[in-house]
Design a protein around this nucleic acid. Structure first.
Lengths: 225, 225
DNA sequence: TGGGTCTTCAAACGTATGTTTCAAACAGAC
DNA sequence: GTCTGTTTGAAACATACGTTTGAAGACCCA
């Protein structure tokens, strides 16, 4: 009880601060004082700051990857035999993320922001940790994408997947800020669910765009030369 | 001569290290030792580490924004009266970036990566600096996008622009790594120009995707309930 | 109640950071 | 050649960091 309380308080504080400020910009002292916990508790319970970062990710990524696996199972069963479509695959992922049990209303934003940070902040140890812990659902998602876009060459698919990941990671990682901006500019409230509902069609359309050769630069100095 | 040599050496080293490792992960000592320059030189010439970051951005962003303005001038002149299309606008931006005079062959990658970092690393001072220095070309780009997509609602356009920025910033900011991965996986070499040639159609297609209501989640627990 | 383990705490450790200091070296003008 | 302002240099500054220490406290089962 006492232990898990301290551990959870540290994880909660770390999660929030990491999402707000990034990893290297967040010190253990910030975390422990926000968690109202002694500084040494982090090293006692987790061993190091890097291990704490891993624990923060594991806490939401492990249940998420389980949810995702069953969502993919359901999807493939429903399609029995036929490969799921691109839209179905993207929605399976999106819904798994959205429907995850949240600790609080900002849960999804934090979750997304941390994923985005993991992708962009060049923390070698984190990338290695995520790769060896969660390669299975990631690989399965990639396989589904491949089967859903048989018309693409491997190279085209590779780059378009990167574009999709980028659009998602960036948007979600700053979704709070972007929502605030929109609120100020147009007076519109937006939920994470609505962002996802706009993102998925954008990604699907980009993924299925006509071949690059069909839309070269218009009459310009480059193509004329 | 002596001064500008030291200043440039600092800027070169800082640019490269910032692009490689991020801002807070790069110390002044790393920079000065890579530049073969005394530690105090940074504070002497720039005043502070933050000011150095600003200088790094200003060195490539100022000529770039000039190039971009004339590219937009050319484009609008060629279209006389009519608003440029989405493709034309995106290509004007892309070509301005690609055709910038580079200090070396990695110039574009560094340029892109720094822009991506500016977007993701939550460096308040940097965002403020960029906003007040380069709001004009950015605003003009936004205006062109708006005129090129009159069919979109303001809210839809807002989000789709964020998706575009995300896909671009992310891809370009890790373009070196992504190119290496592709080289290892499929044995394919890719230039930054080719990435751009694939990215623009992806973005244009996403931007012009059918309305979000037309592609709701397929038959799933959510939409059924 | 006592003994052993797990947990907390205040304090200190060593290292790295951004910044400052001030004397030495240098430049160009007279 | 000397003087003036600019630039470099080695060293130190204060501060913040992640981590370790060892004693005090809390807890649980015998």
């Amino acid at each position: 009880m006492a232990q898990s309380d301290t551990v959870d308080r540290i994880l909660d504080a770390a999660e929030e601060l990491f999402a707000e400020r990034g990893f290297s910009e967040t010190s253990l002292r910030m975390i422990t004082s926000k968690a109202k916990v002694n500084l040494a508790a982090v090293n006692y319970h987790f061993g190091s700051k890097n291990a704490l970062i891993h624990a923060v990710f594991a806490r939401f990524l492990t249940p998420f990857s389980a949810t995702l696996e069953t969502a993919f199972d359901d999807l493939e069963e429903r399609c029995d035999g036929n490969p799921p479509t691109l839209n179905q695959t993207l929605w399976a992922l999106t819904e798994s993320a959205i429907r995850m049990p949240q600790r609080n209303e900002r849960g999804i934003s934090i979750f997304m922001r941390l994923l985005g940070l993991a992708y962009t902040q060049s923390q070698g140890h984190l990338r290695k940790f995520l790769e060896q812990e969660y390669s299975q659902p990631f690989g399965r998602f990639m396989r589904l994408l491949k089967e859903a876009t048989p018309e693409l060459t491997a190279v085209d698919r590779y780059w378009r997947i990167q574009f999709m990941l980028g659009a998602t990671a960036f948007t979600m990682s700053s979704s709070d800020a972007l929502r605030d901006i929109l609120q100020n500019k147009l007076g519109v409230e937006t939920s994470v669910q609505e962002i996802a509902a706009r993102l998925v069609p954008f990604l699907a359309a980009g993924m299925q765009a006509p071949d690059k050769l069909l839309t070269p630069p218009p009459e310009s100095k480059v193509s004329v030369a």
